[in-house]
């Protein structure tokens, strides 16, 4: 009854085509991921059909590969600091956009959001020129600054959306009951933005872990995981990349499931990413 509920007689055939199309799109979306996972267990290495000699060798190689794990560590550090920077500036930025008027506000909003949609190469290169002019040596620190700056946009968008849904009377009630601005922020504003902030943190962390276009130009001696993978891909196809990708994929799946659990336990639509893209293109209206 629920399925195909809005289909009248004439459109049932149409909906069959749509169904077929959707199956095709899903196949297209999942094909590379399936290949990745299957060939991470393939004894004969990457490529070659059919896969043969099921093995865990690539995982074994992976676990004894010091360089990869070092880059994973670097990426985790970078992502964690990027989350702190992006939230630390994105939350006030969203508050400012929501409730302060200042000259250049429109320009400020557009600048903050621009890295969301700008190809990473432009963000990366412009920062490279900054660090070059300021004679700052490239290192993990420059990558962190790059990620943090680019991802303020995510924190701002998410928190701003959360603020739009927040009933202003909540904060007024708090002030009315004698809590000052700081107490009100800690006890009422933040708890109400909890979901937006956790969502933003997860997204920022994931995007940073996967980021390569900006890091590409800001890299010093220490590699992040995507750059380490990139280096190996340039040298040729190596099956342990499949193994690490599979592991990351599984971790991501767990993160998604947790996130949706959380999101569903509170109410709200899971349209975080859609919101982001729309804001990126349209600019958040305040």
């Amino acid at each position: 009854m629920e399925f195909l509920v809005s289909a009248t007689n004439g459109s049932i055939r149409g909906s069959r085509w749509l169904l077929l199309h959707s199956v095709f799109v899903f196949a297209f979306l999942y094909l590379p991921i399936a290949v990745l996972i299957v060939y991470s267990f393939n004894g004969a290495g990457v490529g070659g059909f059919p896969p043969r000699n099921l093995t865990l060798d690539w995982y074994r190689t992976l676990f004894s590969d010091g360089a990869i794990w070092e880059s994973v560590g670097n990426s985790l550090i970078v992502a964690a600091v990027a989350v702190v920077i992006a939230l630390g500036l994105g939350i006030p930025a969203a508050l400012a956009l929501d409730r302060a008027q200042f000259p250049g506000k429109t320009l400020f909003r557009r600048l903050v959001l621009l890295p969301l949609i700008l190809p990473g190469i432009i963000t990366g290169l412009s920062l490279l020129m900054l660090f070059n002019e300021a004679s700052i040596k490239l290192s993990l620190l420059t990558i962190v600054l790059g990620h943090g700056t680019a991802l303020i946009s995510v924190a701002t968008t998410e928190v701003f959306a959360g603020l739009q849904k927040l009933d202003r009377a909540q904060e007024e009630a708090s002030l009315d009951l004698g809590a000052n601005y700081w107490q009100t922020f800690l006890r009422v504003t933040l708890p109400n933005l909890r979901l937006s902030i956790i969502g933003a943190a997860l997204l920022i962390f994931t995007l940073s872990m996967d980021e390569i276009a900006v890091s590409f130009f800001l890299i010093g001696r220490d590699n992040t995981l995507p750059l380490e993978i990139w280096g190996r891909l340039r040298r040729g196809i190596t099956p342990e990349i499949n193994a690490i990708s599979t592991i990351i994929f599984v971790f991501s799946l767990v993160a998604i499931v947790l996130w949706y659990r959380l999101r569903r336990s509170a109410e709200g639509s899971p349209e975080v990413a859609a919101e982001l893209i729309e804001t990126a293109v349209q600019g958040a209206e305040s």
Binding site: D167, A169, Q170, E172, A173, S174, D176, L177, V188, P191
Partner: peptide, 10 residues
Amino acid sequence: NTVFQHYALF
């Protein structure tokens, strides 16, 4: 102190 229109309970 204020009693708000829609109560504004936390």
